[in-house]
Amino acid sequence: MVEASDLAAAAERMRTHVALAQPRRLLLLGDRTIRALLPTGNGAAVGGLHDFNHDGGIVPAIATFHPRLLLTQLAAKAECWRILQSLIEEARP
């Protein structure tokens, strides 16, 4: 199990890396990642488009399931595919 202080430190490193990479969109995988990087007040959940706030600004982020869950739960694969398609559609001009 990951300690809260370790998770907070990892989240800060991830924010720094996002600021350096300057992506146009983010795909977040897994519940811990979602909870660490997205504010809990905005209803951070799988599937919806969220604003990821970091030092370099705000990036649209979409969250989905951890890959381990996708290997064991077939219904989650269909939901993940729908989420990935919405991310692709969002990226089109």
Rank of each mutant, 00 (worst) to 15 (best):
L27M: 12
G47T: 07
L29Q: 09
L28W: 11
A36S: 10
L38Q: 04
H50I: 09
H50P: 03
I34R: 14
T33N: 04
L49M: 13
A44I: 01
L29A: 13
I34P: 00
L26A: 07
R35C: 06
G48N: 10
P23S: 11
V46G: 00
R25I: 04
G41C: 06
N42T: 11
R35F: 11
F52M: 06
T33I: 09
A44C: 03
R32M: 12
P39T: 12
R25M: 14
T40H: 05
L29V: 08
G48I: 00
Q22K: 14
H50Y: 15
G48R: 14
Q22Y: 06
G30M: 03
A45R: 11
A36C: 10
V46A: 02
G41I: 09
L37V: 15
L29E: 05
G48M: 06
H50L: 10
F52D: 02
L49A: 08
R24T: 10
G43T: 07
G48Y: 02
D51E: 10
T40Y: 00
H50E: 02
P23V: 11
L28I: 15
H50N: 05
F52H: 14
H50F: 15
P23F: 15
F52G: 01
I34W: 04
N53H: 14
A36L: 13
A45W: 00
L26S: 06
P23M: 12
Q22G: 14
T33P: 03
D31S: 13
T33V: 15
N53E: 10
G43W: 14
P23L: 13
N53Q: 11
V46P: 00
L38H: 06
H50Q: 06
